[in-house]
């Protein structure tokens, strides 16, 4: 009898922790009723490509939120990265690699600053990262002079928007690799275990010798780094390098992370759920644009989807 009860609890926990996967299956079932094209692997790979900027950024934010933090500066970092990368490339193909490297370093540096301020002052990361976001937008403006600046090098967009072997889009592969890296970090490394420990109970973690400051700084740095990659992916997808390219992305990312099961209270969730949630949001957006709605109507439905999907998720969890 006891075993049965244990199994029931186990099943229930599985259901609670992976509720977003059920939402994803539900949505795919609905989408399949609309058109069987939604079930083709090529469609799913394409969705991953579309979702790359938000998805890659969300991986870093997930790590930060597991340890009970939050990072609202990612939208600003995405914008900065898009502008910086375009400016550094300056239309020259041989500049591509250094531009990408420097952009990632810049993103990581902003994350590092966030991490140091949060770890050594114990201030609200919500407001702190809002403040950093304002500064980063200002810096981006100064750099861009207020208009779209910089020239994307030839080959940059072609490569990142291309497909390996004519099948696998490069950006989808990038998202998948980053997700695998995130899952590896969170579940097999000491850093990952520390994230969950700190998120569940910071005081207990500190008392048991977890180097919480170091872990926090590393997590925020990774978040800045991922946001920079997200900005580069956005630049590849749209070619636009304006100051506000990434404006509002922080909340799309946050919606995905929370929907994916990583709560504001920290200590639970993970990158896998986040990726499922990103897929839920983008498949839903695709359904909306398939219906031929105008942009304002798409915004309206996007909001409704975020609310309904979160509600469905909460209902399944309960």
């Amino acid at each position: 009898m006891k075993h049965v009860a244990l199994d029931l609890n186990f099943g229930r926990r599985m259901l609670q922790e992976h509720a977003v996967w059920f939402v994803l299956l539900l949505l795919l079932a609905v989408a399949a009723l609309v058109s069987s094209a939604f079930l083709r692997p090529s469609y799913l790979l394409n969705t991953l490509r579309q979702a790359a900027p938000v998805g890659i950024t969300a991986i870093g934010v997930t790590l930060v939120m597991i340890l009970r933090g939050v990072d609202l500066s990612v939208g600003a970092v995405i914008s900065l990265a898009a502008v910086l990368c375009a400016v550094l490339m300056d239309g020259q193909a041989h500049n591509i690699a250094p531009a990408i490297a420097l952009t990632c370093i810049a993103g990581a540096a902003i994350g590092l600053a966030n991490g140091l301020l949060v770890a050594f002052n114990r201030i609200s990361p919500f407001i702190l990262t809002l403040g950093t976001a304002i500064i980063v937008y200002g810096l981006t403006q100064i750099q861009s002079g207020g208009t779209a600046r910089g020239i994307v090098a030839p080959g940059f967009r072609e490569f990142l928007n291309g497909r390996i072997g004519g099948v696998l889009p490069v950006l989808s592969l990038a998202l998948i690799l980053m997700a695998l890296l995130g899952i590896f970090l969170q579940s097999t490394t000491r850093f990952g275990r520390s994230l969950y420990l700190i998120g569940s109970n910071p005081d207990a973690a500190e008392l048991s010798g977890v180097p919480i400051r170091r872990v926090m700084v590393l997590a925020y740095t990774l978040s800045g780094f991922c946001a920079a990659l997200g900005g580069i992916a956005l630049l590849a997808r749209t070619g636009v390098s304006s100051t506000y390219a990434g404006r509002g992305y922080e909340f799309d990312v946050l919606a995905a992370v929370v929907l994916g099961g990583t709560t504001f209270a920290g200590g639970r969730g993970g990158v896998g759920g986040t990726i499922a949630a990103v897929l839920v949001l983008f498949i839903a957006f695709n359904l909306v644009s398939l219906a031929g709605l105008q942009f304002p109507a798409q915004l309206l439905v996007k909001g409704a989807i975020i609310i309904v999907a979160s509600a469905a998720y909460e209902a399944i969890k309960r």
Binding site: V258, T263, F264, G303, I306, A311
Partner: peptide, 26 residues
């Protein structure tokens, strides 16, 4: 909506932001 759906207020009101944006621009 918060009381019925019990979703996080940040996510709920972000969704509402998008809905209101859609309505305004419609």
């Amino acid at each position: 909506l918060l009381n019925i759906l019990r979703i996080h207020p940040l996510i709920l009101t972000f969704g509402m932001l998008s809905v209101l944006q859609g309505i305004t621009f419609l």
